[in-house]
C-alpha cells in the first residue's frame, strides 16, 4: 500500500465512516454510491487534500472522475504532485 493510499484511506475511514467500516472499503468503491460522501464531504475532502499535499484544486477538477474512490484519489494526488514538482 502506498503512502498516498494509506493516508487517503485513513482520512476517509476516520472522517466519513468514523472508524466503522461495515465491510472493508475497496480501493475501487464509489464514495458516492456507498453514500459515504455528501456535499459537505466533498468540501472536507478538498480541504484535506489541499492542506495535506499543499496544492490547489481548481473548480473544474471537482468531479467524481478525480475524487470518487481511493484509486481515483491516489491517481489524482499523484498527478497533482507531479505537476507541482
Amino acid at each position: 500500500m502506498t503512502n498516498y493510499e494509506l493516508e487517503l484511506r485513513q482520512f476517509i475511514v476516520e472522517n466519513f465512516l468514523f472508524g466503522k467500516e461495515d465491510a472493508p472499503l475497496a480501493n475501487g468503491d464509489s464514495l458516492l454510491e456507498l453514500g459515504i460522501i455528501d456535499s459537505t464531504g466533498v468540501l472536507e475532502l478538498v480541504s484535506f487534500l489541499e492542506q495535506k499535499y499543499g496544492f490547489t484544486i481548481q473548480d473544474e477538477e471537482l468531479v467524481p472522475e478525480n475524487l470518487d474512490s481511493i484509486d481515483r484519489l491516489v491517481q489524482f494526488v499523484r498527478r497533482k504532485a507531479e505537476i507541482a514538482a
Binding site: 472522517n15 465512516l17 468514523f18 472508524g19 466503522k20 455528501d38 456535499s39 459537505t40 464531504g41 472536507e44
Partner: peptide, 23 residues
C-alpha cells in the same frame, strides 16, 4: 450506538470540523 464511532463524531465536533447536515 457504536461507541467508537460516536466518540469520533464527538471529536470532530470538538475540533470544529463537523459542518455538514449529515454530521
Amino acid at each position: 450506538f457504536h461507541p467508537q464511532a460516536v466518540a469520533k463524531l464527538a471529536q470532530k465536533f470538538r475540533e470544529g470540523k463537523a459542518i455538514g447536515i449529515k454530521d
